[in-house]
Nucleic acid binder design. Structure first.
Lengths: 338, 338
DNA sequence: CTGAAAGCGCTAACAT
DNA sequence: ATGTTAGCGCTTTCAG
């Protein structure tokens, strides 16, 4: 049945390093050295082993190898991807990992802080060399505990602690830019919409700070509405704003996905941006650029953020000790909605 | 600093099963049994071991365990996620995996068939119990080879071979539904836009068949334009259609993302759907439902597809031998664009 | 430059 | 019901 030498690597079983050694008539240790390009292997040996590897279609089993050395695998934990912004981050991570000859494995976890911790630990159990956590909502204490077990980079969240790194957009600056732009357009009653959070370091916090600072600098009253950065959250925001006696003239929805909710509601009710209400947000997801939407937004260069986080994680894996916390400068994309 | 008993599991190193055994004053084998809920452990033993596990914060190392048994980990390989449809599939997979107490690890690979094969193999190297491949473009031969090494389910692609399973939308039926709808609206010159593919089983093929069949049934001329299912591809399609002497009155863009390209181009040029051109597509991504877009589309129930594929993979891992190829029925979402 | 032997953390017979 | 021993596939001393 297509089998070859008896007792060999045929029988449907995956060939091991011992099979290769037998085929090449050398020791398993020698094979291992060739595979790792270790120091001290003759041309001859290299050729023999390579031929055998080729012939058997041998591939090292990563978990066995992982018991003695690094696996060259990065773990990425991400919230469920309703938000396309996250996809762009993942894209950046995947590209950079590939470029650096690492594998990146992604696990999807829930908003729930506990599940995130569990997801992260489960990646450690699986011998990942390091972890990238995308906008994790877990506590700082949990993050620090995790960082003691494994090299760690936060992506899309600001960190300040020691022991891990972070890459975030300069959220405060982004929110300021939105306000500056709206003020320049003559707006004065500008609402900011954000999510309730209890953990520090999340974009919500920084964006609100930036908004408040900019408003006050212009002698305007901050007007913050709490809600959710989802489509539905945006619709509820629209309802709330429109039923006010003294309507605002502009809203910074906090995140594109919420802004889309606002625009949808307005559209359905015969209202248009910016005429009835100027709308702006953060994330610059692809949908925002579609002409019928044309949402003014803060571009956070997500792909670059993902790629930077990956480079930083690899540096850490390869020995860096000092923490680095990077804020990537945002850009304002002015479109029709504001 | 802060260490406890000398020689114990303190010193920053992760505790092993031996540490737990020592702490509980039992044998490592006993610990292993408790951990696996294996047959034949006394109440007493269970309590002692559990306490020790708790005390040390012990977690089994999955790769070591994986050398002797299953890892309860599913590998998911997915194309780079420009297309939100894929996210919905992933979402379904993640939920079902969690429900079944499996972990799902995702790897992002390129369009390129070779890279996909490499990505899949690398998951096998990492001891995944089974693989879900999302709309893989690799050859049937490659798929069959892979299926010999590991339980395999294709998601978003039709398969017929033995040795693996598949879950796809009934793409032919979906395309038919679009044509039926357009014909019912009085359209006769209906273009179908698809991607060039060389591999069988992909949605492109089935959708084109469904389109042709439906057109012919109504005595209409099939009119197929090749291009790319991307935003840019959709814009090129619009250009091509609009410069024709005898313009079509409707287009089935093949995929929502391409339809958005068509709509964008039309919008920028002062044209509107369905007045100037009726536009419909497949995928029903969230953006299509936004009022300013309102794209008529085929809802493939991606979340259910992902979840079904996951259940099927687990069945296979747990012993099923016969192949199953499922076609999930699509639904037409009629909106303003057609 | 190469090979023999020990061991990574765990499970699976086999004793007891 | 529990412990002993061997070994999964690989790397790593350490001799030769």
């Amino acid at each position: 049945m297509g089998g070859s030498k008896r007792g060999g690597a045929s029988a449907g079983k995956r060939p091991t390093i011992v099979d290769v050694a037998r085929q090449a008539e050398v020791s398993p240790a020698a094979v291992s050295k060739v595979l790792r390009n270790a120091y001290g292997v003759s041309e001859q040996m290299h050729a023999r082993v390579s031929a055998a590897v080729e012939a058997l279609g041998y591939r090292p089993m990563v978990s066995a190898r992982g018991m003695r050395m690094r696996t060259r695998t990065l773990g990425v934990s991400s919230l469920n991807v309703e938000n396309p912004f996250v996809n762009m981050l993942l894209d950046g991570v995947a590209r950079e990992a590939k470029r650096s000859h690492y594998s990146a494995l992604i696990v999807l976890s829930d908003e729930d802080g506990l599940t995130q911790v569990e997801a992260a630990k489960s990646m450690v159990d699986r011998q990942m060399d390091g972890l990238i956590l995308i906008t994790p909502t877990m506590s700082v204490a949990d993050l620090e505990a995790l960082a003691r077990d494994v090299p760690l980079v936060l992506l899309g969240r600001h960190g300040q602690g020691e022991g891990y790194d972070s890459v975030g957009s300069d959220d405060a600056r982004g929110a300021e830019m939105v306000v500056e732009h709206l003020v320049a357009q003559g707006h004065e009653r500008i609402v900011f919409h954000t999510q309730e959070v209890d953990t520090t370091g999340l974009p919500e916090t920084a964006r609100e700070q930036g908004y408040r600072a900019a408003m006050e600098r212009h002698g305007l009253h901050p007007d913050v509405v709490r809600g959710e950065w989802t489509l539905a959250g945006g619709e509820r925001l629209a309802v709330e704003l429109m039923k006010r006696d003294r309507r605002p003239t502009a809203v910074h929805a906090g995140a594109d996905i919420a802004a889309l909710g606002v625009l949808s509601w307005m559209w359905r009710h015969g209202l248009r941006a910016p005429g009835d209400l100027a709308v702006a947000a953060c994330d610059d997801i692809p949908t925002s650029d579609l002409p019928p939407i044309s949402l003014t937004s803060i571009d956070q260069d997500a792909i670059e953020m993902g790629s930077l986080a990956t480079r930083m994680l690899i540096e850490r894996i390869e020995g860096r000790e000092e923490s680095r916390h990077v804020r990537v400068p945002p850009r304002l994309r002015v479109r029709d909605s504001a």
